[in-house]
Design a protein around this nucleic acid. Sequence first.
DNA 1: TAGTGGTCTAGACCACGAC
DNA 2: TCGTGGTCTAGACCACTAT
Lengths: 250, 250
Amino acid sequence: MASTDRPVPAGLQGEIRAYVLQGLASGEWATGERIPSETELMARFGASRMTVHHALKALSAEGWLRRVKGLGTFVAPPRGHVLQARLLDIRDEITGRGRVHSLQLLSRELRGASLQDAALFAVEPGAPLLHAVALHREDGRPVQVEDRLVDPARVPGVAELDPADESYFSFLMRRFPYPEGQAAIRAVQPPPELAVALELGPGEPCLEVERVTRAHGAVLTVARLTYPASRCVVTGEIAPPGGWAKGADE
Amino acid sequence: MASTDRPVPAGLQGEIRAYVLQGLASGEWATGERIPSETELMARFGASRMTVHHALKALSAEGWLRRVKGLGTFVAPPRGHVLQARLLDIRDEITGRGRVHSLQLLSRELRGASLQDAALFAVEPGAPLLHAVALHREDGRPVQVEDRLVDPARVPGVAELDPADESYFSFLMRRFPYPEGQAAIRAVQPPPELAVALELGPGEPCLEVERVTRAHGAVLTVARLTYPASRCVVTGEIAPPGGWAKGADE
DNA sequence: TAGTGGTCTAGACCACGAC
DNA sequence: TCGTGGTCTAGACCACTAT
C-alpha cells in the first residue's frame, strides 16, 4: 500500500537515500534541478565517496535522479503514471482462486504464414506456423478464448504440445523465461462465433488483450486473448520511479 | 525494440554483468539455482570484491538475481509477463499527435461524500468532495469522458481549477509528481448518457480505465475514464526484470 | 568454523563539461 | 584548470547460514 518495499540499504547509504528522497518528496528540489554533489554529501554525512556514490547510483537506476558526468546530479523528470500489470497464465489465475480450470481445444493446425504473418514473424510467406484456438473455462463457465500463433521453428516441440496438458503460456515461459514484447488492450464487439463460444449476454462486449512475444528480437508467438467484459478486469499498480524491481516476494 | 537500454556499466562491471546475463539467457543456470559467489567471480575476472559486488547488486536490484546473506546468489524466479503502460494526460496525447484538443465541462460540483466515497477517501461521510465530469474531444470528435472525484482538502486549489485551462491530471502531477495508486481496465457497455456524449455507434462498447491516486497513503483522486472502443487502445511493453528504470529518455 | 553477502573506507585514475 | 560523476582497488568489520 505504501510505496515500494525495496530492500532499503542500511546504514549511511540508507541515510543518504532517505535524505534525497525526502528532498524530492517535499518538493525542495524541483524537476531538473541540481542536487548536492557527491563531494558535498560526503561532507554532510561524513561518508566516503564510494558510499555516497552507491546511494546516488541506486537512486539513479531507480529513476529518481539523472546523473551527468562532468555536470552533476539532477532531479529526473516525472514520467506520468506508469501502470504495471501482471499478465499471468489464465490457468494459474483460475487455480490460484481455487477454481477449476478446463480447456477445450477449438482448433489447431499447422498452416502457411500469410503475408501479414510473414511480416510480423519475419519469416517467408508460407512458412509453417502453428495456429491454435482454445476456450478456457472456470468452473465450467467460459472466461477466455485464446487465439495463438506460434512459430514452431523458434519454439521446438510446440507443435506437439497438447494445451490441455500444459498451457502454451507456461510452455513458452519455461523455455523463454525472460520475455520481451508488446501488449495492447482493447474493448471489442466480439464476432458471433466468439459470442457463442463465450456464452455472452446480449450486447456484452469483450476485453481483448493482444500480445506479441519476442526472444532475442525474434517473434515467438502472437496471442489474442478475448474475455467477456463481465468476467475480466486488468488491474495493476501505478508505479513510482523504480517500479517494483524488488524480487518476486509474493 | 531490443530489450532495456539501461546505461550499461562499462569495464569490468560490464563484463561481469554480461557474463551473468548470458548465463541466465542461455539457461545455464535455472531458476533458483546458485550462481558463482563473489569470491569465485573475483578470481574469474581478476576484479576486486567491490567491483563484483556492485555488478551483482545492480542485477539483483533489477530483479534478475536474489542474494541471501550467508547463503549465496541465486537466479530469481521469472515473474510472468509484466505489462508496463504509460497512462498519460489525454490532452498531451492528443496534442502530441498534432491534433486539437478541446474540453467540455459537463458538470462540476462540490458535494458531500457518500458512504462509499468516505470509505475510499478515508474521510467523514458528508465531507466535501469535488465531482467533475468532462468530455474531451480530438479534432472535435469525442474521445473520452473523464469522471473525477477529488478531495479538495488534500489538493488545495483544485476546486478553483478550470479544467479547460489546465487538466486535472496535469494539475495533480505538478503538485504530486510521484503518484502511487492502482488502476483497472475494463470493457463496458456504456450507459445511455455516455453513449450520447461520446457519439457512439450502435452497440459500440467502451474501454474504461479507473484510477485511484494516492500520495503519502492518502487518496487524492479517483478518475473513471471512458473511451469509445474504436478510438482507444492501451499499449505497453512487456518488461524484462528491471523494467525501464532508465530515466525518462524519450 | 568457514563461507556468504552487506557495508564501509581512503585512496586512485579517468572522461567529461564549464570556465 | 577545476569540479563533476564513472570506475576500480585492497583492504576491513559485520551479520548471517550451514556444518
